[in-house]
Design a protein around this nucleic acid. Structure first.
Lengths: 328, 328
DNA sequence: CTGAAAGCGCTTACAG
DNA sequence: CTGAAAGCGCTTACAG
């Protein structure tokens, strides 16, 4: 291929300006001319270069979506909604794996800037760090940015966050009200979001006067199983466990069962995120629903407004709710 | 921002050509000039427009990745590997949800063409249909394309497929060898890939002379549970079930347990894909590993060669293997 | 070692 | 209703 509007113009016996006008459905073109050009456009399977068009229109018609790892089911929902919604308006989404480190994440801000995206979306609290903040100031000070589950007080950055402090606090309180008195909390990765969860757990422990039993594991069902065994060995009195994410709760539950514990009779279990894992696990997991769907919807609505009006900004907080299933 | 190389040139007291040369690390520039320009570039946080650069270099430095739905865990692995790998080489990935219909998928080929991507990747057998094939012929006849789990006999399309006929055949044969004589198969969506699985099941049924018991459900654990109940009611003699995907196998297993069946004593269960679900389910699911990782690696290797040499083409077939866990 | 000019594929005033 | 020209932000021969 490689046809340009000049090729089409020659074929149709008109100028490139005219071809451009029919391409953009501009008024004031003789019907017969328009139809002839349209026919030739169709016949030659012409497709206009969005890059060239963007250069003159000063827009890329692209949205940058940064996720630390797109394989993480938990983060992809927002990316999905945004891609879907804005494709209909002619925007393509650059969905990029921004990596684990603060520096690589900051580097991706620079990459988005060189692609001149019309807006950027950061998904996940792990973007909340100084290098990213500085990169935004340096490279994207005017581009509308939406931060899902984190915030920067920068004039061009909107935020949509889940109130995880309350989410975990409520879970602990519920367990307490059910008569549990030795409620443990198992964290995984150290992220701003997980730090908020710990805060919620500590607040509950303080207010309700139950002992603080806090363990940390990494991000897999196996790791959840291991740490749970350790917890149970060191604290046989535990009668309820809250996990920072569903996946480790599933691994943990399985281990509890293998150790001969009954769920929820001996030990109640609550996960976090209301993920697919929580629904298909056996027993089905009670979980703190961080309202991922709502967060994502909200993100996409804000983005919509920000694209129209680049100085638009909004800050939303969404409260989690407890979903009770078979482990409580 | 909105700085151009002319702004930098003026600031540095040189021409735009010189700025461009230092930007591209071209040799033959006085050291002092280069350093001055570099300093100003840095100080002003300049970031070059990839679109403008691409226009003159006749490259977008973008790769288009089409998936019917990025929330489908099963498809995202390949997208991840490609994004990661080619980002290091300066390519950005347009990961797009191409939708459910043949027409919308074909439409996305056109979209990629207008973005002038350097290569395209189709992930999932559902892209194997005539509208997509025609769109490739019309709009991307020269762009290297890699098809993961499907194929088109077109000069610019490579393919990497999993031999699902063999995968399911082997699963059925294994069950038969274990003494099972009433082996059912439960399919979900009607895709080219699933049709191959049915072929494998039918081949086993024919060769090993066991009765063909085939049911179809939709794509959720609940649906898998429902159809399993129906199956067991209508065919109480069934002593083994193979499912087209792990998720419905998980739903099915759970239902079997609820109905008082023992797994695998009364009924053996095998899923497909060796997905995370199969590992965390309880009991842990035996499954046909379709080697998603290998498929993805292979895709990304072919893409690498195709980017170097746009006429490079390759066709790979990968054999699945059986992973035995607790349900057989 | 450096700059002026042309050109990548478009769009949009400006003229007619 | 239509076309010639300028310009979007770059790069790359070509001269010097």
């Amino acid at each position: 291929m490689g046809l340009t509007i000049y090729d089409i113009a020659r074929e149709a016996g008109v100028s490139a300006s005219t071809v451009s006008r029919v391409l953009n459905s501009r008024p004031g073109i003789k019907k017969s001319t328009r139809e002839r050009v349209e026919r030739i456009l169709k016949e030659s399977n012409f497709s206009v270069s969005e890059a060239a068009r963007g250069l003159v229109n000063q827009t890329s018609k692209m949205i940058g979506i940064l996720v630390s790892d797109i394989r993480n089911q938990h983060h992809i929902e927002g990316a999905y909604m945004i891609e879907q919604h804005f494709m209909r308006k002619g925007y393509c989404s650059l969905i990029l794996n921004a990596g684990d480190t603060d520096e690589s994440k900051a580097e991706y801000i620079r990459i988005l800037s060189s692609r001149r995206v019309n807006a950027a979306v950061l998904i996940g609290s792990s973007f909340q760090n100084e290098p990213v903040r500085q990169a935004i100031i340096d490279y994207m000070p005017d581009t509308p940015i939406i931060f899902q589950n984190g915030e920067f007080s920068l004039p061009n950055v909107s935020s949509v966050v889940s109130d995880e402090v309350v989410g975990i606090y409520d879970a602990a309180k519920y367990l307490y009200e059910q008569g549990r008195r030795n409620i443990a909390y198992i964290n995984n990765n150290d992220t701003p979001s997980n730090r908020k969860k710990i805060l919620g757990y500590e607040k509950a422990s303080r207010e309700l006067c139950f002992p603080r039993i806090l363990y940390v594991c990494s991000d897999s069902a196996e790791s959840g199983a291991e740490i749970t065994e350790k917890l149970i060995t060191e604290h046989p009195e535990v009668d309820a466990i809250i996990y920072a994410v569903d996946l480790i709760a599933v691994g943990g539950s399985r281990k509890l069962l293998d150790l001969g514990k009954r769920i929820p009779e001996d030990i109640a279990v609550i996960g976090t995120d209301n993920s697919p894992f929580s629904m298909i696990s056996n027993p089905r997991l009670s979980t703190v629903d961080t309202k991922l769907q709502e967060l994502s919807t909200s993100c996409s609505e804000i983005l919509e407004k920000a694209i129209e009006n680049p100085s638009y900004t909004e800050h939303v907080i969404i409260s989690p709710s407890l979903v009770l299933r078979e482990t409580t």
